[in-house]
Every structure is written in structure tokens, then in C-alpha cells.
Design a protein around this nucleic acid. Structure first.
Length: 615
DNA sequence: AGCACGCCGACT
DNA sequence: GTCGGCGTGCTC
């Protein structure tokens, strides 16, 4: 017998090996196989007849039984095609890591032993439409839990990160045993969880993106928590948003899908508008007073406007907690007098400001411009880079409120032991200053005030999702403020639709204008984007142009000229296209992509549907 | 991706 | 004289 094996490598096609006599092997099992040197983990994708003369033999079986069915392999094939990644890399990233001695011992081991009962229909909870269901509004998580635990259907809950997975495992664990598939538990436990699901021995499973292919019987549910989170598409394989994989899987398998979001992704909102998803909003709940402190025309020497300072004082006096949201980036240029942000005329996103280069550049089309003397909108002369970082704000707050307990918190920086101390300090503080990560510390209605020192900075980030991100942050903060509390937004863009929608507690007031902007400028969900990165070694100079010209003739593509990034020694090419963008890119770049014609021409990386823009 | 084989710079 | 940089090519 001959086995075709795919590896975690940028290799377009699998390699063939001789199956040693007596081995029983099926597609979907992992094996160790020699690949130019020591044996490596590979996935059997096909087994066929043949003597296999001249082929190397497989070294060892890792999985005693297939972890992936042919249907799951097909779905992985789709993911690989959508992301222009190799089949092997995609599959292996969607399995629990191989454990020491294979997985043989886990037969009985650590699963809960509670067999999942047959899915039963429960009338009021059943959604006749079969469409993915998007839960928004207050209490959406409680509603999801009620839906999941309301009948006996097994469920796979996918969270954006490990902390969230742990939280959900705990919450669902109150109703029935839960197995975990995420990296927050030991590898052996993840594998055992996978196997328990496969034989119907676990009613609930929680995991992150790597659990997207975990076994789920017909009638099972797929739940995606906080579907709008960029964390659902972290760096690395599979390079596709968990939402897109989950929806594809659900459609193929006929699984009922439930998604939650405080502020849905524009992509999901669009689906709901077009009848390919169903949106369920809770009745409006208590909502804080939202006030915009207009900072136009005010020279910002102070982080806190009188409005915000007064609100802080009152909140502290009432013995309630204050959150002050600050920004980390200083990248765009804005007018201090009218609030305009300098944008690219073609792409309608803020131009990146480089103090070093004393100039502006559009991250999308590469247009550059010198610093204008005056604001193009109002001819004002005060053009300022945005910049209210946490340190400056903390200093300002300490000066004003000398006796308050003030803490700065940044979960991205504060990891490990010291992070825990910082966390405790933040939880004990009266004023917590930080970026969006701070909100994870606080539950609904636990704040008296949320103040945003300069969200314009976030709105001005040169990314077409800047408004969506800002809106999501403001909304998430508002959800954590008591109904008798306040949200104060200092802004030079007081009429921005994100602020208007926040004040009215009205999602559609944000998405309607946002959708128009996306349509007009040709951004997702109306067009798909891809980001092509070409390494620029000394010998690989012309490749970026070669890539650009290879794409130039492709139908339906908009190809922007390569822009150099000297710091990372790459050129980047932005491409816009239609729903078939991966296919068109794949066909146009065949021959240039890694396999075959390799590094001599430079490393070409293609990121389809990027959610994070390079900075 | 990983790894080997290959030719050019400063060091025990 | 070698150790080691990473550019180049290959892996059933």
C-alpha cells in the first residue's frame, strides 16, 4: 500500500510513502514520515494500492484512528484554498497537538463518561429558518447558555482566546460536563476531548480556532463567541477568520449556528441584512448617559476636558469606579481647529503620519504627501499628530486627583507574575487607565464612568476598520457602565456615526452609514482584500513588480502599486477583488508562489481577508 | 518549513 | 588555516 502524506510546509502536493506490511491506515490519521532528514509529523490524505518500490516507508503511526473524516478533510481543503495555504499546514493546525506516545492510552481516560443524549427538538428554542443566528444586546451570553442547555443537543463553543474558553467551560460546566480543546489545558487532555466528542461521550466542548473541525454529530450546535473579535484570526494557520470557517462548516453539515456579539462585525451585519443570517436583539436595557466633549478649537494641553474632569470627580465622590480609555498609537495627523483627519483622497482612510519622514503616506495605495501648511478642510494652522498615551494621561489624572487610587493596566504587556500584581492593582483602583484590554477585567454594570480621552486617535488609524473597532470599544465600555453612570467621549468628531449610535444605543445607526462607506470605497463585505508581502533581499529586488504585473491582467482585480517597508525589508501589495479572490490570486500567481520557483525570487506571502493591518 | 550544501569574512 | 554567515535547492 501507498500513503499520500501532507506536511506542515509550504508544499503544494502530498508526498507518497510505502505503508509497512500489516499496518492499517486511513486518511485522517497522522504519521511520522521521513522528509529530508528526521521523520516529521504528516497527515495521511489518501491510501492506495501499490507496492511502493523506491518509496521510503512510513516511520510510525501517531493517531491509532483517524481524527478527521473525509468530510472534515474536504472542509480543510476548502480552508486551504481560501487562504492559499498548503493543505497540510491547514489540517495540522486544526488538530490537537500530537502527544508523546501517540494517543493510544486515552481510550477511556479523562473524559467525563456522560454520554450525550440524542438531540431532542424543543419547540420554542428551535430556529426553523436554519440560518446562523446572531445574538446581540444585553444578556446575549445568558441567552446563548439557555439555548445551549435548553435541550440535549451537543455543542461546540468557539471562543476568541484561551481565557474566554476557560470562562465558558466554567459557565457551561454548571449544566453538564465540558471538555476543553484549547491550549489552556494539557495536550493529552485536548486529544482526549477530541476523542470523547468523536464517540459522543461529551455533551459540551469549548475551544478556540484550532477546534473548528472537532467532531460534532448531526443535530449538534456550533457557537461562536464574540464573532467580531479580531482574535478569531490570529497570526498563523489556518489563516482564516473562525467565523468564516464555522459558517462554512455549519452550512455543509446542517448544524445550527449561534453567534454572539455586542457589536457585530460589519460582515455579519451585512449577512443579517441580506437574509443569510438572523439577528436577534434583546430589548434595550439600562444604558448610561453618553456625552461628547467637543474638543475642536481647544488647544489640547490637558488630557482631561472640564467635562470629563467633573465627571471623574463626581464618580469618585459616589464611590464608583472610573475607566479611562487611552490610545497606543500616534500615526495620523488631525486638525486641532475643525477636527478633520488628513485622509487619502482615493482610499478614504487616514494617511499614516511619519514624523521621521516629515510626511504622510497612504497605507493602502502608497500615495505620499508632504505635510500641508494648513488644514485642507478649514485652512486652520494647527495640524497635530494625535497623542494621548497612558503615561501622559495617568500623570494628568494624578495631578488632578492626588488622593485617588489610580492604576494603569495593559494585559498585553503585563503577563505572568508581575501581570497578576498589576491586575490586582487595577481591580483595586478607583481610576483604571488603559486600552481596550482593561475592559476584560470588568463585568456588566461594574463601572460608574467610562471616559475616552482621545478616541479620534483610534478613528484615525489608517485602516478601513478603524470606525468599526472604535465603535466596538466604546460600546463594550458602555455595556460595563451602570445605567445611572456615564460615558464621556472627548472628540473632535462629535458628529461621527459611531458616537451618535452609541448615544442612542442603536446599532443600526452605526452600521447603516458604515455600510455605505464600505460600499462606496470598495471595502469588505462588498469587495475582498488581500495583502501580498514580498521579501526584498538583495537579489530579489524586482519580485514585487513581477508579482504586481502577474496580477495586472487578472479579471476583476484592483492591484495597488507595491509599497516598500524598509524596516521589515518587504514590499507590500494590496489587492481588491470579488468573492473568488483566492482563486484568481492562486491562478495568477501560480509559478511565483513558493513551491517550484522558490526563494530565489523572494518569499511571497499572501494574506487573504486581512483583519490586522501592518503598522 | 526544515535542513544540507555551498561559497565568502574575522577569529580560537 | 577553520568557524559560520545565509543564499539556494530539495524533500516521497
Amino acid at each position: 500500500m501507498i500513503a499520500d502524506v501532507a506536511f506542515d510546509a509550504p508544499l503544494a502536493s502530498p508526498f507518497s510513502y510505502r505503508v509497512p506490511d500489516g499496518w492499517i491506515l486511513s486518511p485522517g490519521q497522522r504519521v511520522l514520515a521521513p522528509l529530508k532528514g528526521p521523520p516529521r509529523v504528516g497527515l495521511v490524505v489518501a491510501v492506495r494500492d501499490g507496492a511502493g518500490e523506491g518509496l521510503k516507508p512510513l516511520a510510525r503511526i501517531i493517531d491509532p484512528e483517524p481524527l478527521l473524516t473525509p468530510e472534515q478533510l474536504d472542509l480543510a481543503r476548502w480552508v486551504a484554498a481560501e487562504t492559499l495555504a498548503s493543505f497540510g499546514s491547514t489540517c495540522l493546525a486544526l488538530l490537537p497537538p500530537p502527544t508523546e506516545r501517540g494517543v493510544g492510552g486515552a481510550r477511556r481516560g479523562s473524559d467525563t463518561g456522560t454520554p450525550a443524549k440524542k438531540p431532542t427538538r424543543s419547540r420554542e428554542l428551535e430556529d426553523a429558518s436554519g440560518l446562523p443566528e446572531l445574538l446581540t444586546g444585553a444578556g446575549r451570553e445568558a441567552r446563548l447558555i439557555a439555548l445551549l442547555t435548553g435541550d440535549q443537543a451537543p455543542a461546540l463553543v468557539l471562543t476568541p482566546d484561551v481565557e474566554s474558553a476557560a470562562r465558558w467551560a466554567q459557565r457551561l460546566g454548571k449544566a453538564a460536563p465540558v471538555v476543553r480543546l484549547d491550549s489552556g489545558v494539557p495536550d493529552a487532555e485536548r486529544t482526549a476531548a477530541w476523542q470523547a466528542l468523536a464517540r459522543g461521550a461529551a455533551p459540551y466542548a469549548v475551544g478556540t480556532r484550532s477546534a473548528l473541525l472537532a467532531p460534532l454529530p448531526p443535530g449538534g450546535r456550533l457557537a461562536l463567541i464574540d464573532e467580531q473579535e479580531a482574535a478569531h484570526k490570529p497570526p498563523g494557520h489556518p489563516r482564516l477568520h473562525a467565523r468564516e470557517v464555522a459558517l462554512e462548516r455549519a452550512a455543509r453539515q446542517g448544524l445550527r449556528t449561534l453567534l454572539t456579539a455586542g457589536t457585530p462585525s460589519v460582515e455579519m451585519w451585512w449577512r443579517a441584512e441580506h437574509g443569510s443570517a438572523r439577528l436577534t436583539a434583546a430589548p434595550k436595557a439600562a444604558w448610561p448617559t453618553v456625552a461628547v466633549a467637543d474638543t475642536r478649537g481647544i488647544a489640547r494641553r490637558e488630557a482631561l476636558t472640564p467635562t470629563l474632569a467633573r465627571a471623574i470627580r463626581e464618580t469618585l465622590a459616589a464611590g464608583r469606579r472610573v475607566f479611562l480609555g487611552v490610545s497606543r498609537l500616534t500615526s495620523a495627523l488631525g486638525c486641532d481647529e475643525c477636527g478633520a483627519i488628513l485622509k487619502c483622497a482615493d482610499c478614504a482612510i487616514a494617511m499614516a503620519y511619519s514624523p521621521a519622514a516629515r510626511g504622510l503616506e497612504c497605507r493602502l495605495c502608497g500615495t505620499t504627501a508632504g505635510l500641508p501648511e494648513t488644514c485642507p478642510a478649514c485652512r486652520g494652522r494647527r495640524l497635530m499628530p494625535f497623542g494621548w498615551g497612558a503615561e501622559r494621561v495617568e500623570h494628568a489624572v494624578r495631578r488632578r486627583f492626588a488622593r485617588a487610587r489610580i492604576a494603569r493596566y495593559d494585559p498585553d504587556i503585563a503577563r505572568g507574575r508581575r501581570g497578576e500584581a498589576q491586575r490586582d492593582a487595577a481591580l483595586a483602583a478607583e481610576v483604571v487607565i488603559g486600552t481596550r484590554g482593561v475592559l476584560k477585567l470588568f463585568g456588566p454594570a461594574s463601572l460608574g464612568l467610562a471616559g475616552f480621552v482621545s478616541p479620534d486617535q483610534m478613528l484615525g488609524i489608517p485602516d478601513f476598520r478603524a470606525a468599526e473597532r472604535t465603535f466596538a470599544l466604546l460600546w463594550a465600555a458602555a455595556e460595563r457602565v451602570r445605567g445611572d453612570g456615564a460615558v464621556i467621549v472627548q472628540s473632535q468628531n462629535p458628529t461621527h456615526h459611531a458616537l451618535a449610535a452609541l448615544g442612542k444605543q442603536d446599532l443600526s445607526a452605526f452600521y447603516t452609514p458604515e455600510m455605505r462607506f464600505r460600499a462606496d470605497a470598495g471595502y469588505p463585505p462588498f469587495r475582498r482584500l488581500a495583502l501580498i508581502t514580498v521579501a526584498t533581499g538583495p537579489a530579489t529586488g524586482p519580485t514585487a513588480d513581477a508579482v504586481a504585473s502577474a496580477l495586472a491582467g487578472a479579471p476583476g482585480l484592483t492591484v495597488y502599486p507595491p509599497t516598500p517597508d524598509r524596516r521589515h525589508r518587504v514590499h507590500r501589495i494590496v489587492v481588491k477583488g470579488g468573492p473568488d479572490l483566492p482563486r484568481v490570486l492562486g491562478e495568477s500567481l501560480r509559478g511565483l508562489l513558493s513551491d517550484g520557483a522558490s526563494r530565489s525570487r523572494g518569499i511571497i506571502e499572501v494574506e487573504v481577508d486581512p483583519v490586522e493591518w501592518p503598522s
